[in-house]
Nucleic acid binder design. Structure first.
Lengths: 125, 125
DNA sequence: ATTTGATTACGAAACGATTCGTAGATCATT
DNA sequence: AATGATCTACGAATCGTTTCGTAATCAAAT
């Protein structure tokens, strides 16, 4: 049975760091986190321990300092969260969401071109 | 000062109903909610009262049964939530998100065409 | 071996969201 | 005006998340 990935806000912040940096110690994660967030070290530690419990992370406990690794795939998590948003906010229509995103965000011409190219490629196959 | 809209999961469900149905009584909202969710009437009531408190809703209290109205605009809420997702999950790139959405969702050819048309229009202006 | 510094483990407080029971208010019917 | 049905108000319990203090553990340096 496939589990749905539903990280909390804080968990997502940690996942993002691990996705970007790869397997890391608590301290490394905490230092990144502390750049944008005022939080204590043991808070980060506890969060990561809970995420271990929830199978969002794994860890290598050889030696004193443990090394944590994200167990969930970035693309998969992104996809699931997007899918959910599309369903609950955009009536299941990816198109509506895309348009809203592009409309709001005032994408650059280069970005628009890239999307167009991507669409072309997708239509062909 | 502009407030950020950060409805919870449950609040979003209620907002969606009000956006779709327009101003409604608690009972009307609850009946829709109860179709997909097993919840009590007073729970819905309490939630809507809290949302009133948070200024997510307004209400007309003339007469016995109150009529609630969404105070937040649908498009605005969607936009903000998308923006946040883009920032936290897609490194600020709307394009990345759009591609991920399209890639995952397997949009129909018709949908793709509509998006392309939209892009063209957007490029022109 | 002892001290020092950093790490992990753990419990508990604080907080917000959610749920629901119960009481009180209101209205229509009789 | 009493009954019954429906609604609102409110407090409290529960639950999950987040936070942090403190103790235990470990490793390196003295």
């Amino acid at each position: 049975m496939k589990q749905y990935i539903k990280p909390t806000e804080s968990e997502l912040e940690i996942l993002n760091i691990l996705w970007a940096s790869g397997p890391s110690t608590v301290r490394a994660v905490h230092e990144q986190l502390a750049r944008t967030k005022d939080t204590g070290y043991t808070t980060t530690l506890k969060l990561m321990q809970i995420m271990l419990d929830k199978k969002l992370l794994s860890r290598d406990g050889t030696g004193k300092t443990h090394i944590y690794t994200a167990l969930v795939n970035r693309e998969q998590a992104q996809g699931q969260m997007l899918q959910k948003m599309i369903e609950t906010m955009f009536n299941g229509s990816a198109m509506k969401m895309v348009m809203q995103a592009l409309g709001n965000h005032k994408a650059s011409k280069a970005e628009l071109d890239m999307i167009r190219e991507y669409l072309d490629q997708k239509t062909k196959s």
